[in-house]
Write a protein that binds this DNA or RNA. Structure first.
Lengths: 206, 206, 206, 206
DNA sequence: GCCTAATCGAGACGGTACGTCTTGTCTTAAT
DNA sequence: ATTAAGACAAGACGTACCGTCTCGATTAGGC
């Protein structure tokens, strides 16, 4: 029996360290320069890497920034604070904290803007960021159901659509507050947002 | 007595037609090329205008696109459909329809991304787009209060903060659904979103 | 009666100073770096000019160097030293002196090498360098005929072919001596070469 | 018994076939691409050899091309046509035929151009090409002397200098005619050139 | 009916980044 | 030790756009 791996690709293997250095350099450049003044030549320089090495791995600025930003969101965790409201407030505050960081602020919206004309980029954002963080909604719901705060669904498809809706409402509200309205999503705001989310509009207007 | 123009500057006056032509050309270029491939030279060419003329009126690409996109949202109207839920559904569908147009999709998020590092641009977006459309929330609440669907507020400041919150939730959810999740905000989705907004999360999960 | 020139091309006119600065910078770069390490970016930098300005006027490195080198040969003059042999020696020594300069040495042969695969470049070399210096052969012959050292031709076409032949022999020998054999074309060599040219091979072998 | 390799170096021996394949590939690339667009990566690919192998044997493009071109001139032979004039015409026509081949045209002048700034390369050209072909001049003179067409020299040093001069005149004239003037060195031209060389300028002008 | 002055179109200008290409070195596994 | 394969750092390529500038040619109002 021959070697298991087809034939272990010939030639010098790609440096694993380079990938990490490039993504870190990308975030550093986003902090210092912002999206529009970030250049791939500059990123390569910061990472101590040639431009070719960078282009061998990523198709362009968009793809690179998606990957660099996606890592930021992986640190989100759903805390167990004893109630659905408290859990939501906890995770929303974490999300707001990430969106307060300059490397996330300009990078995230810029790639979303580009993705409106680039199907592959849209898919990459969905895979690397959106779908990956939907786990928080699912975990939160499951925990609330275990506590008896929310009923269990009968229909799996409806359940999935509802999770998507909740994700759009939560993520959209925080992003809009932070980047468009350009106001901080502080504890007070998060408390009021969570109240609307759980009890509806009437609850805060009264 | 109002201000009179200081002394009606001498020399050839600026062409009024040029402004409209430039904004229209900008939207056309956004449709064809998207934000990142749109160049001011190209816009000038489409508008039949010299680059100098364009730079005399706008500081750069960002400012130009903000003005070009802002006009799109001025056509939003709050319909009177007899109930708060129906009114919300109506205006959200209009908003979703605008966000389905390519000149709005890439232009809007791009200038928001740029605004994270440019205070003046952020202010321009707030003035030209955000604050201008908050009227819809205020109108909707007033009408709902007149109908007795919502209570009247005692505290003006709390009322203002609530209006901001509602605006962030509504606009944020639609933008996220449309541009990030990249799914259509169709009637079914709008109906379910409105239900959550008015009655809270429990209403759709049951 | 309207203006004579069709309409005096619109727009900012090209800077005349830039042309001279670029050609001078090209020669300076040839001296310092030689042909193969000369870069257009470097030339632009030396000339205090943007790369675009350079590319607007010349198609590439080849064309630029042809023009820069061609100017060097325009300083050649046929001296009147009283005899054909002395006149030839005089002009050949001038030619050798130019070929001793580093900006001519590497530039000239390099563009000739490139011209073997580029018809337009070949034509440019012929026009700017070769044909322009053939005047020296014609002047020299005319003067020798006036002195009675050479007979007058009957046939104009034969006369032209002979001038071409002489030019190839003289220029070729000096270039080969200087660049290929890489020995100096000093007074001694020039004297012996002129002897062969005028009297034939037997004259020096004896 | 000839020299034996000192101690038959350990490890895998160098492939002898590779050298020939590389030189042939170099000439093929010169024909197709010319000097300036010839790359070592391309040559390696054509020869079915890794770039490493190529760099282990030659220092760079210049050295490789010198060797590839040098082989072309080794096929030159001095024909015995019965008279000095006929012998010269014969060998000059052979030389012209080689210079008509594209691999020689661009390769030869390019390495000469490079050699103006590279002493080692100049020496390599002298050794591999120039000195090697001077044998033709020496043979031709010896044969002419045997025939009584040329006198025998008394001074060996003068004889050597004259041989160099003749070589520069012959090679220089043919190269200049072929590459700079870009006209064919055909039989008619060679006949007239030989006449000048043997009898001097007066012979053709009359 | 001039005069004056800001506007207009055109396009050249100095810069800067692009994404690709080549160079010469290096790191693998295989021979 | 040499090989094929291919990744690597470095840096030039020729193009595109930016925002500014310099032109000559309009085009109004004020005189």
């Amino acid at each position: 029996m021959q070697s298991r791996t087809p034939h272990a690709r010939a030639g010098r293997p790609r440096s694993a360290a380079a990938d990490a250095a490039i993504l870190a350099a990308t975030r550093a450049a986003l902090v210092e320069l912002g999206w529009s003044k970030l250049t791939l030549g500059d990123v390569a320089g910061r990472a101590g890497v040639a431009k070719t090495t960078l282009y061998r791995r990523w198709a362009g600025k968009n793809e690179l920034v998606v990957d660099a930003v996606a890592e930021l969101f992986d640190e989100l965790r759903l805390p167990d604070r004893g109630s659905l409201a408290a859990d939501i407030e906890g995770v929303v505050l974490q999300f707001a904290a990430i969106l307060a960081r300059p490397e996330a602020r300009s990078g995230l919206m810029a790639v979303v803007a580009e993705s409106t004309r680039d199907e592959a980029l849209r898919e990459r954002i969905r895979t690397s960021i959106v779908d990956r963080q939907k786990r928080l909604v699912l975990q939160g719901r499951a925990r609330a159901q275990a506590r008896g705060e929310l009923p269990r669904e009968d229909d799996a498809e409806t359940a999935a659509r509802t999770a998507d809706l909740i994700f759009d409402v939560v993520a959209g509200a925080v992003v809009h507050r932070t980047l468009v309205s350009a106001e901080p999503a502080d504890e007070e705001w998060v408390r009021r947002f969570t109240q609307v989310l759980l009890q509806g509009l009437g609850a805060v207007s009264g």
